[in-house]
Nucleic acid binder design. Structure first.
Lengths: 141, 141
DNA sequence: CTAAGTGCAAAATGTTTGCATACTT
DNA sequence: AAGTATGCAAACATTTTGCACTTAG
C-alpha cells in the first residue's frame, strides 16, 4: 500500500487521468496500451504493466483476476473511495461472463460475520462471487 | 455440470485417485503432472489439463484462480459433497495461503440474499473468500 | 549527478490446439 | 466400427525481465 518514490512522468500522468476518467470500470493492461496507441501515443507495454502495478500498490487501483489465461482487470477506486472505505462486491456470471458491481449493506454483514464468528478478515477487493446472473438464469430454463 | 461421456482410461483413473487422496488441498496442473512424472508415469500435459477441466465440469473438482500469472488451483470436492448438497465455503488467506473450509448456516444466507435481492445465483463451489486468517492477523500486529 | 522510469525485444509462464495414434465401448 | 482420449509439439496469450537510454528530482 505504501508507495516508494514516484517520479511524475508523462506516461504515469496520462495513464492516471485515463484511469481516473473510468471509475468503476474494469480495464486490462491491453486496454490501456491500445487506448493510447489508437491516439498515436505510444507507451511501452512494460511501462503499462509496471505503472498499473504501482497504482495497485498505492491503492489507487484494484486488481482482479477473473479467469486463468485471461488478463487481469484493474479498476480505478482512487483515494476518495478508499478513504470512505466503501465496500464494493463483485459478482461474475460463469455463463455470460458479465461482471456485476454491488454496493450493498447486507453483504457487508458477511464481513462482520466472518470476522466475529470465524476470525477471518475478508478482503472484498479480492473476492469475487461466482454464479449465474439474472439473464442467464432465465434463458437457461 | 452435466458430463458428456467419459471413457475409463488409465490416465483418468490414476489422476482421479491422486486427487481423491488430497481432499481440501489445492493442486495445480503442474502438481499433477510432476507427481506422476516423479513416479516414472508420464501423462501428457494436455491430458492433465483436459481431464482437470472435465472433473470441474462434473463437479468433482473446484477450480480457483488466485493470481494472474500463476497457475489455476484445483481442489477435490467429490461426489459425496455434491450429492448431499452440502454447502461448503472456502476462505483463502492471502498471506499464508491457508485454505479454510466453512460449513455455516449463516453464510448460506448470502446465497439467499444474493438470489432474492440481486437475482444472482451464487455458486459456492466456485467462490472463494479472500482475506486474512486468524494467525496472520495476529502475527501482523 | 543520481535515482527512477522508459521502451524494446526476448524470455518466462500457463494454457490451449492440431493432429496422428491408441484405447474404450 | 465409432467415439473418445492421448501425447507430442507448436501456437497462444499474458506478464515479466535484461539492458541501454532518457528523464525527473
Amino acid at each position: 500500500m505504501a508507495s516508494g518514490s514516484n517520479y511524475k512522468t508523462k506516461q504515469r500522468e496520462i495513464m492516471l487521468s485515463y484511469l481516473e476518467s473510468r471509475p468503476g470500470v474494469h480495464i486490462t493492461a491491453a486496454d490501456v496500451y491500445d487506448h493510447f496507441r489508437a491516439q498515436g501515443v505510444t507507451i511501452g507495454q512494460s511501462t503499462v504493466y509496471r505503472q498499473l502495478e504501482k497504482f495497485v500498490d498505492e491503492g489507487i487501483l484494484n486488481k482482479y483476476v477473473l479467469e486463468s489465461g485471461s488478463s487481469a482487470c484493474f479498476e480505478y477506486v482512487g483515494m476518495s473511495v478508499h478513504k470512505k472505505n466503501e465496500t464494493c462486491f463483485h459478482c461474475k456470471c460463469e455463463k455470460c461472463g458479465k461482471l456485476i458491481h454491488l454496493k450493498c449493506e447486507e453483504l457487508e454483514e458477511i464481513q462482520k460475520h466472518l470476522y466475529s464468528e470465524h476470525r477471518f478478515k475478508l478482503d472484498p477487493l479480492r473476492t469475487v462471487f461466482y454464479g449465474m446472473c439474472d439473464d442467464c438464469l432465465e434463458s437457461k430454463a
